[in-house]
């Protein structure tokens, strides 16, 4: 795998002349987790789509640059809130979806290793319909890892899970996504307080850095540093809305 670069997005985005965000600068440091927070509709998903190179409603003026000056094409993998597993494929087949889509020969051995790593060894031949929400999201994580890209963008991937499963998944993701440049879009201040090397609060006029707790991620749920960062973030976000 090639080295994970840092990414800097600079610019403005408008939909039909209505500004979504204006003149912001967002840097995702290399091989670190950046958690992007902000009120609904402020453009978090738009930023994610812009970096992914997907269509957005509206026009972006600005630049997206990488520290190694190479293009982002085929260097990012993506995980969404819903697992996006194909119901007619088994867990193993879903894990190698990228290769299947590109008509390449899938590396089944590696897929099996990765499925074991996310705890799905015994469920490889099952269809997604037979799995719980947490297991499905694990399968999606294995599919993300299978692509082995240096940059990973996560769009609230744990938000639909119950609290216990979510905490487990956060730990698993932090463990398996080290050495990658990760951006996690989240609504959950607790998640940001646990996972982030960098916390960014997005407003229409700036991507504001928020101080991270003084211990390294992934932080224990019940560490005083995590908890105080979580409550300060929450207080700030509620102030946003008022």
């Amino acid at each position: 795998m090639n080295e994970a670069p840092s990414i800097t997005l600079q610019g403005s985005h408008a939909i039909d002349g209505r500004t979504l965000f204006d003149g912001i600068t967002l840097t995702l440091p290399a091989a670190e987790w950046t958690c992007l927070l902000g009120p609904s509709g402020v453009g978090k998903s738009t930023i994610l789509r812009l970096i992914l190179g997907l269509d957005t409603a509206g026009t972006f003026t600005g630049s997206i640059e990488t520290s190694d000056a190479k293009p982002l094409d085929n260097r990012i993998s993506y995980m969404a809130q819903s697992d996006l597993l194909l119901p007619w494929l088994t867990v193993l087949e879903n894990a190698v979806l990228g290769a299947r889509l590109r008509d390449e020969k899938p590396d089944l051995d590696r897929a099996q290793t990765l499925l074991a790593r996310v705890g799905l060894s015994d469920h490889q031949t099952k269809k997604p319909a037979a799995l719980s929400g947490g297991m499905r999201q694990r399968a999606a994580l294995a599919r993300t890892l299978m692509e082995d890209r240096p940059i990973v963008l996560l769009d609230e991937p744990f938000s639909a899970l119950d609290a216990g499963t979510r905490a487990d998944m956060q730990e698993l993701a932090a463990e398996v996504l080290t050495d990658k440049t990760v951006m996690l879009v989240t609504h959950d201040p607790g998640e940001a307080a646990r996972m982030a090397h960098q916390i960014v609060l997005l407003t229409p006029s700036e991507a504001k850095q928020w101080p991270v707790p003084p211990i390294p991620p992934i932080r224990p749920v019940d560490a005083p540093e995590t908890l105080s960062a979580q409550s300060e973030l929450l207080a700030h976000m509620r102030g946003f809305r008022a």
């Binding site: 190179g53 990012i76 996006l84 194909l86 007619w88 889509l101 590109r102």
Partner: peptide, 27 residues
């Protein structure tokens, strides 16, 4: 077809035809 699936397939480098064949038709 769920647009999320199409987005995912695009990020995986699938072409329009591959998306049609592997995702949209079975779906």
């Amino acid at each position: 077809v769920d647009t999320g699936l199409i987005d995912l397939a695009r990020t995986m480098g699938a072409t329009k035809n591959q998306i049609m064949r592997r995702i949209r038709i079975p779906h």
